[in-house]
Amino acid sequence: MQRVRMWTSIMFMGLGVSLVLADGGYGTNKAMASGAEGRQKSSIVTQLYQNECASCHMAYQPEFLPKRSWRKIMKGLENHFGADATMDPKDQATLSKYLQENASDAKRTSHAATKLTRSIPKHSVLMRITEIPKFKREHREIPKRLIKQEKVRLLSNCVACHQRAEKGLYGERDIFIPNYGRWED
């Protein structure tokens, strides 16, 4: 009997852990956000970010916009640049938290992100990375026809030219513009 009870309690512990993991279990236990469990949890969140956001566009690194921008974006998903991008309220809360915690003004950012976000005026709440002043300056020399072409279409299509954009790499050596080639300043 003792044995059976022991096994049952182990089962329930197992069930508890899997439930926490299944719903993202986000923010319920700060101490857990370290080591292997932390990594596993963060990969669940980035997977969620991929699923909810990257079906239509690249999963832009959150560090390219400040907290105030992400807050506004996540509050207006019913009309997200003209599309409905609503999601399960729990998923939305998880992603909002993820975006806040990884925004440009929440942590140390990469060189590329720092370079751009430094130029954002203090009180403006930009909705697009492509509206960042430094982003515009960096892209202004590209001829319109190279942007308008079918393989690129929009400046928001980072991966069209920055071949490793999804990994957060925007260096010059990774730039290849379709029907043009390498871009050198």
Binding site: C56, H57, M58, A83, L154, S156, N157
Partner: peptide, 9 residues
């Protein structure tokens, strides 16, 4: 292909 962003579906 997404009509607006061009992303492959």
């Amino acid at each position: 292909k997404h009509l607006f962003t061009g992303k492959v579906i």
